[in-house]
């Protein structure tokens, strides 16, 4: 039986304090009504189900917990997540999973611009499409896009891997298409399974860093 917290009556501050202090096995949060910073900074192996739309930074810096948003999420959902799982049943706004170090972020709908910006090890699976500058400066982890990607995908990419099933409007500086080997097909299959998706890995293309911008060189002037 989940512990129920109704944000129509309880301030977000009290919700977060409760989640930080005495985590029980499962929580259900009602009436989020676009509130910011819902269930952020939580630690522990428990579940939080949020019944509605959330504002900025929902589940920010999550550690171990499983957070599900039964609605849409605003800017920076699961930003800097360290571990655990965050799932958005609807769409997500900008900078979903920004700088996240670990864990799994699943967005069933579309994600907006800068999805996975500066990602540092997180896995992100987007059921729909992502906006421009997604995986910008992505350092590590995997971004899977089942729909299309906007402009400048993977700009200034480090070692993050990107898989896209649909079209890519344009690739950013130093991002190139790469060969899809058996190893990549296998890891993609695992990611899709973890996200409860049924797309065929063979339909995806892989993108990564050409590693041409790793050192400052005069020949790269136009890229800077």
């Amino acid at each position: 039986m989940a512990t129920l917290i109704d944000l129509a009556e309880t301030p977000v501050r009290d919700l977060n304090q409760a989640l930080h202090e005495a985590p029980v096995a499962s929580w259900r949060v009602l009436n989020p009504r676009g509130a910011h910073a819902v269930a952020c900074g939580i630690r522990g192996n428990f579940t939080v189900d949020i019944e509605g739309h959330v504002g900025y930074y929902c589940a920010g810096m999550n550690q171990q917990a499983t957070v599900t948003v039964h609605g849409n999420a605003g800017t920076g959902v699961a930003e800097n997540m360290m571990s655990g799982t965050v799932r958005v049943r609807g769409n997500a706004s900008q900078s979903a999973g920004a700088t996240a170090h670990g864990g799994l972020l699943v967005i069933d709908g579309d994600a907006s611009a800068r999805c996975g910006i500066s990602m540092k090890g997180v896995d992100i699976v987007v059921g729909g499409s992502v906006g421009h500058m997604s995986a910008f400066m992505g350092q590590a982890g995997r971004l899977v896009v089942c729909g299309d990607a906007g402009d400048a995908l993977g700009d200034s990419l480090y070692e993050a891997r990107i898989y896209v099933r649909g079209t890519v409007k344009s690739l950013g500086a130093d991002c190139v298409e790469k060969e899809m080997s058996a190893e990549h097909l296998a890891e993609l299959a695992e990611l899709l399974k973890a996200a409860e998706r049924d797309e065929d890995p063979a339909d995806f293309r892989r993108y990564g860093s050409a590693r041409q911008l790793y050192h400052f060189k005069v020949d790269n002037t136009t890229a800077y």
Partner: peptide
């Protein structure tokens, strides 16, 4: 990477305060 301008910064600061219990 996840905020632009002073209005967003207000929400970012709110998040940092929430994470560290003010």
């Amino acid at each position: 990477p996840d905020w632009t301008g002073p209005d967003d910064l207000a929400i970012k600061i709110l998040e940092l305060r929430e994470i560290t219990d003010w």
